[in-house]
């Protein structure tokens, strides 16, 4: 009995760990990846691998330099591999799933060069996550920041994709490049006339629409959502607040045209962002009240900016709200159990 442990209570702990949670998120993202392979071909796998490998390598290299790997190579590397918690895998995978696989130049289709996801994930891990302190300390969603960097730097490549569907699109418009010229069917949606040509079923299944590789098949996202909710990785009601607010606000902006409800929540990156990106642990608020405000604001911003700009804005909204999270957490403190009563006594 020489190795008796002394520690503070509690002495039993729930069977959970950071690694397990992150692997759960990866599992939840798998249906989206599978859908991407079915809809956009095996090249999606290449993009996903490039993104994940770059993300993981960036994290390892950054941590190795930070821990002065040249002084004790074996010790530092051993520690890094022991502490590797799959957060960078999740970031890399999400980043890959929110960019398209192809781009078009004058009607001709090209595969997206692999240096794009690589740049995106290096940026998102190094500059959005690690410089702020790594896991759990980043204020901005790494995948969203990576996508925005790509979006702003390579706008033409990220927004010009057109049909490369393995499954034949149901809508075969002759003018597909015009209707579906955005990264998502959004532009089509908010066109003054003919905007609602896409049926909600198509949007749900991802057939006939083109866009970011993981965002188009909504069924896959819903499977991932169900998995995360059942495994209690995320709270099941938070994404619903976001999606519901966005849908209702879109209906209101369209002059209470309820036909807009389903298309607006099923199009673009809203569903994916609500399930996988807005719920990111370190960039969302901690208390219930702050969370509700966060998700409602996200929904309002999303629908409002979509109408105002006509492009896909989910990543921007998430990034914008991420910046408000520290404020929400600081100025909306939780009231401890028994608080209300104490306040009354002070007044009287």
């Amino acid at each position: 009995m020489s190795n008796v442990i002394i520690s503070a209570s509690p002495h039993v702990r729930a069977k959970t760990s950071t690694r397990r949670i992150m692997i759960d998120v990866c599992i939840a993202l798998l249906p989206c990846l599978v859908a991407a392979v079915i809809f956009f071909g095996a090249y999606s796998l290449a993009i996903a691998s490039a993104s994940i490998v770059c993300a993981v390598l960036t994290e390892l290299v950054y941590s190795a330099i930070y821990r002065k790997v040249w002084k004790d190579f074996k010790g530092v590397m051993g520690r890094l591999f022991r502490e590797f918690d799959f957060t960078s895998v999740v970031s890399g995978l999400i980043l890959a799933l929110i960019i398209p696989t192809t781009y078009a130049v004058k009607g001709e289709l090209f595969y997206l060069p692999l240096y794009l996801p690589a740049i995106g994930s290096v940026f998102s891990i190094a500059l959005a996550k690690m410089v702020f302190g790594g896991t759990g300390r980043n204020f901005a969603n790494p995948a969203a920041s990576g996508r925005i960097v790509l979006f702003i730097s390579f706008t033409a490549m990220l927004t010009s994709c057109v049909g490369n569907c393995v499954i034949e699109p149901i809508i075969k418009s002759a003018d597909v490049s015009e209707i579906l010229s955005g990264a998502t069917p959004l532009t089509a949606l908010y066109l003054p006339e003919g905007g609602l040509t896409l049926s909600p079923l198509d949007l749900l299944l991802g057939t006939g629409v083109d866009g970011s590789m993981g965002e188009t098949c909504k069924i896959a996202i819903l499977i991932g959502y169900a998995y995360l909710a059942v495994r209690r990785v995320i709270k099941w009601y938070y994404p619903l607040i976001y999606i519901g607010t966005a849908g209702v606000f879109a209906v209101m902006l369209a002059g209470f045209n309820f036909a807009y409800f389903l298309p607006s929540i099923l199009s673009g990156g809203l569903l994916f962002g609500a399930v996988f990106m807005a719920t990111d642990y370190s960039t969302s608020p901690k208390s219930t009240l702050a969370n509700v405000i966060y998700y409602v604001c996200l929904g309002l911003l999303n629908s409002g900016l979509r109408v105002a700009t006509g492009i896909e804005v989910t990543s921007f909204c998430i990034l914008l709200m991420n910046c408000l999270v520290p404020l929400l957490d600081t100025y909306l403190p939780r009231r401890p159990f028994g608080y209300v009563r104490a306040k009354k006594e002070v007044k009287s």
């Binding site: 790594g134 896991t135 642990y281 969302s284 901690k286 939780r334």
Partner: peptide, 21 residues
Amino acid sequence: SPTTHCLSCGKCADVCPMKLM
């Protein structure tokens, strides 16, 4: 099992019976 970085997941706040942070 060893302590890792705080994830800021907020699970501690979710279960706190005194509703603390």
